[in-house]
Simulated assay, not measured.
Amino acid sequence: MSDMLRAPAEVKYAEELDWLESVDDGPKPFSWRLSPKMVRLFILGSERADGLDREIAPKWFGDRSFVERSIVTLASDRGLLLIGDPGTGKSWLAELLAAAISRNSTLVVQGTAGTTEDHIKYSWNVSMVIAKGQSRASMIPSPIMTAMEGGVIGRFEELTRATSDVQDALISILSEKYVSIPELDDDNIVFAKPGFSVIATANSRDRGVNDLSSALKRRFNFVRIPVVTNRKSEAEIVRFRTEELLRRHNIELEVPPTLLDVLLQSFADLRAASAAASGDDERLESALSTAEQIGVLEDAILHSTFFGARALTAAALAGSLVGSLARRSPEDLAILNKYWHGVIEPRSREESGEWTGFLEGGRQAIATLS
């Protein structure tokens, strides 16, 4: 792991997965490495009622029903589509599911405007084709085809970013469960083995980019992942990710609970203002997601560690928040300036504490960017 900038979930939690597999006596669909109950437990964490000899920490924070529906879908012959706003943990949930079920979450196709049919089927090693002709040996299988051959989970990120012809190619894979290779005379069909499925993600804000056809929608079970609005759950997510960052960088720095409350309250205020806005010019371009909160806090921690007094301050947190959310100039800066004067300033007078440093840090950051 020390040689990886970001280890996949099956590597990061390998010891835990090995242990769960060793004590798992539940029925496993197809070629699954863990039973559905253990998959859920790995993702959501253990409880005392589970009767395990060790505690399993939660890795995804959300409603249990979303995880259970996702697991049930993957045990069927339908694909799973996780859809929601940016930063709601769709990709992380998809990675955890693939890691727990297949011990391989890296068979991923990233949907973009440049994604082609080859990326989900196969391409050719040109030099081998010239030397020996077309054969299975000279074929380069896509991550999806590799998942089919292995009977494991394949992933497709940002499905609505892919063009319609790529989406159409996925329809045949999900419905027929095989890929034809017309260039070959023999051994020209790759059949999916039991256990194969596809987890796709889609950004609900990308609606209208490349809408999914009704035929493709029928091949998926939809699980909509909402924005986390529960204050306790959001705090757990931010704390969990921040602790990972501190461990990865070997940083010994405390995040005061009062500063975490300031961050959570600020995002709650800005979301409320965005929901009440009458036009796009009155809304921040940011989705104000939990993932963006984590990014703001990580930025403040690293800045404080490398350039500050090795202590997280309210001023550093405010500067990070303004710098991260002020993407459009002058629109976003005007919105943040209005928020700082209309909300943070009176709150600083009434409650003082960390809000005073937060007020000054935000004012300085806005003035610097204006």
Rank of each mutant, 00 (worst) to 15 (best):
A7S: 15
A14H: 02
R40T: 02
S46M: 06
D50Y: 07
G51C: 10
F61G: 00
F66A: 06
V67W: 06
I71R: 10
V72P: 04
L81M: 12
G87Q: 05
G89N: 01
K90C: 03
L93S: 02
L97M: 11
A99C: 09
L107P: 01
T116H: 06
E117H: 08
Q134F: 12
I140S: 08
S142G: 11
P143T: 03
I144K: 11
E149P: 09
G150E: 09
V152I: 15
I153D: 01
T160Q: 14
T160S: 15
K177I: 07
I189C: 07
A192Y: 08
K193G: 08
F196Q: 08
S197P: 06
A202M: 12
A202N: 07
N203L: 07
R207K: 15
L212Q: 04
S214M: 09
N221E: 04
V223T: 13
P226N: 08
R241W: 01
R241S: 00
L245Q: 02
L246N: 02
N250I: 05
L260Q: 12
V262T: 13
L264H: 07
A268I: 13
D269W: 15
A277P: 13
D280I: 12
D281T: 14
E285Y: 14
A291C: 12
A300K: 04
I301W: 00
H303V: 00
R310N: 13
R328F: 03
R328V: 03
P330F: 09
L333H: 06
K338E: 05
P346E: 02
E360H: 08
R363N: 06
